[in-house]
Each structure stands twice: as structure tokens, then as C-alpha cells.
Design a protein around this nucleic acid. Structure first.
Lengths: 180, 180
DNA sequence: GTGTATAATGCAAATAATTGCACAACAACC
DNA sequence: GGTTGTTGTGCAATTATTTGCATTATACAC
């Protein structure tokens, strides 16, 4: 029930609707936990059924009304408990690396293309990360406790991202040595 | 059908049994794609049904007999095709980072413990990576084509791993500033 | 008033992955 | 002879995730 906990985490400080959660999951928390809107709506219902979330309809003008969810006391407790659970970590699954095991003269150009695309995507993401850090996390030691944790997640994203860029360059160089 | 392709990739050069695949998936390819033995046996049956794998019983002495699987011509073709498919990327789902968003005075000690454990695990893994690189991938430019791809996967693992260690240190330092 | 875009919520079916169990061959130790 | 450990294969049930629809409200441009 990991997605449930990610959603509850997103609701720690704000009430959010399913639509907003789905949108936010493409940034912020979503950098290391993605979910489609279908999955989010389903999970919201499950969490509500368990009594961990409360729902409330909000009238809007200029847009359809929305249903916002907030953590209940039970939800807050369950989340706090979950943090103490020992979760086995799931190492990343990446198709690109599996594909690289199949490298040959025929597909080298295609794989170089995929790497280039991923590199560009990562550049954009890093740009965003850098902006967020500059704006909100300039001096991590002075942040309130919870924000320190958020900063650390961001910091890992930045480190891994930068390393990924360097790897892309190395990979493209090596792929260039493959004779076609 | 990503697991299927990972299995087929593992069978590119060798015939392997389900048990051997499950074991190998804990190293090598398994560094970025893990699967339980149940999943592997199920997938092997599916791939056989499709005609992408052939099976063959092998008598053994001192151990129970095993059933080894090998790529058929159809399987080889399907795999080669898959490499050209555009696969939307990755999972990168990590409970630890979600947990960090919940950082507070109560759980800081626990989270520091989790990070320490992950750090140690990564140290062991990096040690293994380093050994593999030293033994088999000393001069990447001189490798045969397919091995260049395998090397690149390893190289990414090493880069990301080293960065992760550095992050663990940063994280532990910052967590030490949290007042309990 | 018709098409297009965005905001908003959801169901159903299929596929993927995990968890829990079961069983059998063989070795080696006590 | 019994227990424990490794090798080996598998099913069933559950949970998680993806894919493919489906629908409603509102704004805006043509």
C-alpha cells in the first residue's frame, strides 16, 4: 500500500482533490513516485473507506466543482506509524538498461537516440530542481524539520540527475565507437 | 511485457533454468530488474506458449533435474524488435524518499537508521560492481559490441551508487541537526 | 452554435507483481 | 533414521498498475 502512503504524504499540509494530486504527482513527490489519475482516484476511495481521509466538495466558479480530501486523525496516525515500518526497497527497473544488453550494430543508432532523449528530459528536470532549490532550500540547516526531509529528497534527485547526464555523455561516446 | 524481455535478454548467450534465472536476477541484470522465482516461472510458461522459448530437460547427478530454456528464432526476432520500441521510462519509486517527507523529531532516529542500512547495502554492492569491472570491463573501448552495452549498464550503476553514498553522508549530517 | 482545450471524476478489463503455500530430489550431518 | 539445507518447480489468491474507455462542466475562439 505504498501509493496510499504517498498520497497521504501529499496531503500532510494541504487538502487536495484527485485532479490536483494527479497534477502534483508529475512534479514534487511525483519525481520519485508516479501514479496515473485512475490509480489515484481508486486509492482515494480506498483510503476514504478506511477512514484515513475525509472528503469535502468545493464549489468553484469558472470550473467544475471538485472534491478535496484531507487527512483524518486516524490517517495521520497510520501514516506516522508507516514511517517506522521496514520497507524493503525496490531497486529501479529500467528498460533502457535491459535494451543496452542487446546492443548491436543494428540498434546502436536507435539506442543512442533514446539516450539523447532521456538526456534532454533530465536536463529539463534538473533545471526545475535547481529552480526549486534556489527558491526554497537555499540553506537547508535553517529549515524547519519536515522541510529538511523534503530538501534531502530533492538533493538526491539533483545528485542522481547530474550523474545521469555525465553517464549519457560517456554512453554516447562509447556508442560512437561501435562500427555499423 | 518488460519482464519477459529481461528474461529473454538473460538467455541471449546461455540456456538457463528458472532457478538459475532467479538466482542470476539477484546479480547482473537483476541490479536493475528484479523478479521473484514465482514470477519467472510464470513468465517462462507464457514465453514458451508464444513460441519464443524452447524448453529442454537436463538430467543432473547430485541435484534434481532441471528444465532449461533457450531463445528460439522467433524469440530472437521479437527481442530485437522490442529494442526498437519506444518504451516510456521508469519507475524509480522509493519508499525512503516518501518517508523523508514525513520527517519529524519522533522518526528522525529511525530514518537515520534506514539510511545507514541502505548505505551499507550500497557499499557491498559497489564492491561487487568494482570487482566485476576490474575483471571484465577494464578497457571498454576494446570490448565486442554487445559487451559495451553491458558495460554501460554497469557504469551507470557505479555512478549512481557512488552518488548515493555521498548523499547518505549529506543526509546523515543534516538529520543530525534535527532537535529531538 | 460548433469545435477545441482544460478541469474534473470515474469504471472495467487486462496485465504485472507480491505473498503464501506446497512439494520433490538429493546431500550431508548427527 | 531424522533433520536441515540446497536445488528445483509450481499454483492460488491478492494487490498494484496500466490501458482503454466514458462522462460532465466550463471557457474561449471561430
Amino acid at each position: 500500500m505504498a501509493l496510499g502512503h504517498a498520497i497521504m504524504t501529499a496531503l500532510l499540509e494541504d487538502e487536495l482533490s484527485g485532479y490536483e494530486l494527479a497534477r502534483d504527482f508529475e512534479t514534487s513527490l511525483g519525481f520519485f513516485w508516479q501514479a496515473s489519475h485512475q490509480q489515484i482516484y481508486l486509492e482515494l476511495r480506498k483510503l476514504s473507506d478506511k477512514g484515513w481521509l475525509s472528503k469535502r466538495e468545493v464549489s468553484q466558479s469558472g470550473k467544475p466543482n471538485k472534491i478535496v480530501y484531507g487527512l483524518t486523525t486516524d490517517g495521520r496516525e497510520a501514516l506516522a506509524e508507516w514511517v517506522f515500518s521496514t520497507t524493503r526497497n525496490q531497486a529501479a527497473k529500467d528498460n533502457l538498461l535491459v535494451k543496452l544488453y542487446n546492443l548491436d550494430a543494428d540498434n546502436v543508432a536507435h539506442l543512442a537516440g533514446e539516450i539523447t532523449a532521456r538526456r534532454e528530459e533530465m536536463m529539463r528536470r534538473l533545471y526545475l530542481y535547481a529552480k526549486i532549490r534556489r527558491r526554497h532550500y537555499e540553506q537547508p540547516e535553517t529549515l524547519p524539520t519536515r522541510r529538511k526531509g523534503v530538501y534531502l529528497a530533492l538533493a538526491l534527485g539533483i545528485r542522481q540527475g547530474e550523474q545521469f547526464l555525465a553517464w549519457c555523455d560517456e554512453a554516447l561516446d562509447l556508442l560512437a565507437t561501435v562500427e555499423t
